[in-house]
């Protein structure tokens, strides 16, 4: 499905070999870090993690379209691949999974990535507000908000789509339909079977794409950004993918899907698909792939070392970061806490 008018300008330009190789390197880095994070959890380095295994093409492809000098991205808790693609400090990002600070330790304004969001569909409306701010300021930034097939059931998604369409806000709604909302499959989640199909009701162009094809994802996202940036209003992209792993490190998919169902539903691995394509097109060779994997491993080691070295935040921050202007009651509680906490 594709109801987005064909873009003018450079949005549909073919990717250079260097860009294609960069996409692959990013996907390998994300895949390796994602797998490692599960291992970290098993080793007790972090208490929990929400893997994005199988969604590397959707996340790297869409994140690659972001212009971090002017755009702003609103993630959920499963957009590690987007964060990595946007160049966010990954120790600061992964700190949320170490239970250091809910939103992560990265600076959202500098990295152009809103704090990690644990409320399903919580930040979809924020993207609309930020984007409308661009309109009011006569700037050309675009907001991209991520959500899933499960979140599409939330009323806030309807409100966000309607507000954005009414106000012609420059928003790209990027839906990763990964087939599962914890244990509930899309067919029992999304009536009609497609989130993208709903966009028509808002008079909003939409694309339903192969979310496991990184080049297709990047192309669609670039077109959507160009459309929104030109003042034509919001676009919805539904990237069809598959959550190959558990919902989180606390989840047990064996209780709701068999391995056979998992294999059939997942289809071909997006990373392997892209590797075969680069090989077939003569863009990259085995030496390059080996180099990319080695770089991913070195990067993961560096991030793991950083995470392990990360100290707990001082308890005073509990009190100091609630308000910009604190209150006497908070100051009194902080003073009590200091007095009554021997370890401080």
């Amino acid at each position: 499905m594709d109801t987005l008018p064909v873009a003018s300008g450079g949005a549909a330009d073919p990717l250079t070999p260097a860009q294609l190789r960069e996409l692959y390197s990013l996907m390998v880095a994300v895949r390796h870090l994602d797998r490692s994070a599960i291992a970290w959890q098993r080793q007790g380095i972090i208490p929990g993690y929400a893997p994005e295994l199988g969604q590397e093409a959707a996340q790297v492809g869409s994140g690659y379209a972001v212009d971090t000098t002017r755009d702003f991205v609103f993630p959920t808790y499963r957009e590690m691949g987007v964060a990595r693609t946007m160049g966010v400090d990954m120790v600061a990002y992964m700190s949320t999974h170490k239970a250091t600070w809910h939103g992560g330790l990265y600076d959202p304004l500098k990295s152009r990535l809103a704090p990690i969001q644990a409320v399903v569909a919580g930040s979809v409306l924020h993207a609309v507000g930020w984007a409308h701010g661009q309109t009011l300021d006569q700037k050309d930034g675009v907001a991209m908000t991520y959500f899933g097939d499960g979140a599409s059931s939330q009323g806030d998604v309807h409100e966000a789509l309607n507000f954005a369409a009414v106000m012609k806000a420059p928003v790209v709604f990027f839906v990763q339909n990964n087939g599962w909302a914890i244990s509930v499959p899309t067919e029992r989640q999304v009536a009609g079977g497609s989130v993208a199909a709903r966009a028509a009701g808002y008079g909003m162009p939409a694309l339903q794409i192969d979310g496991d094809d990184v080049v297709a994802v990047l192309g669609a996202t670039r077109r959507a950004f160009a459309h929104a940036r030109a003042g034509n209003g919001p676009v919805l992209i539904e990237a069809m993918t598959y959550r190959r792993g558990p919902h989180s490190t606390s989840d047990d998919p064996g209780r709701y899907r068999t391995l056979d169902e998992e294999r059939d539903g997942a289809g071909a691995d997006p990373l392997e698909r892209f590797r075969q394509r680069l090989l077939a097109d003569g863009i990259a060779d085995e030496a390059f792939f080996a180099e990319a994997l080695a770089a991913a491993k070195a990067e993961e080691e560096q991030i793991r070392t950083g995470i392990q070295a990360l100290a707990s935040r001082p308890g005073t921050e509990m009190f100091d970061l609630v308000f910009q202007e604190t209150t006497p009651a908070l100051q009194a509680q902080a003073a009590n806490w200091r007095e009554e906490s021997e370890h401080v």
Binding site: V124, L125, A127, Q134, E159, A160, V166
Partner: peptide, 21 residues
């Protein structure tokens, strides 16, 4: 004026505040 949806009004406020309004 906004559409008639309070969560939308308040959610939008968050994004506007993040954009410096």
């Amino acid at each position: 004026d906004t559409p008639l949806a309070e969560s939308g009004i308040l959610g939008m406020s968050v994004g506007l505040a993040m954009a410096g309004f």
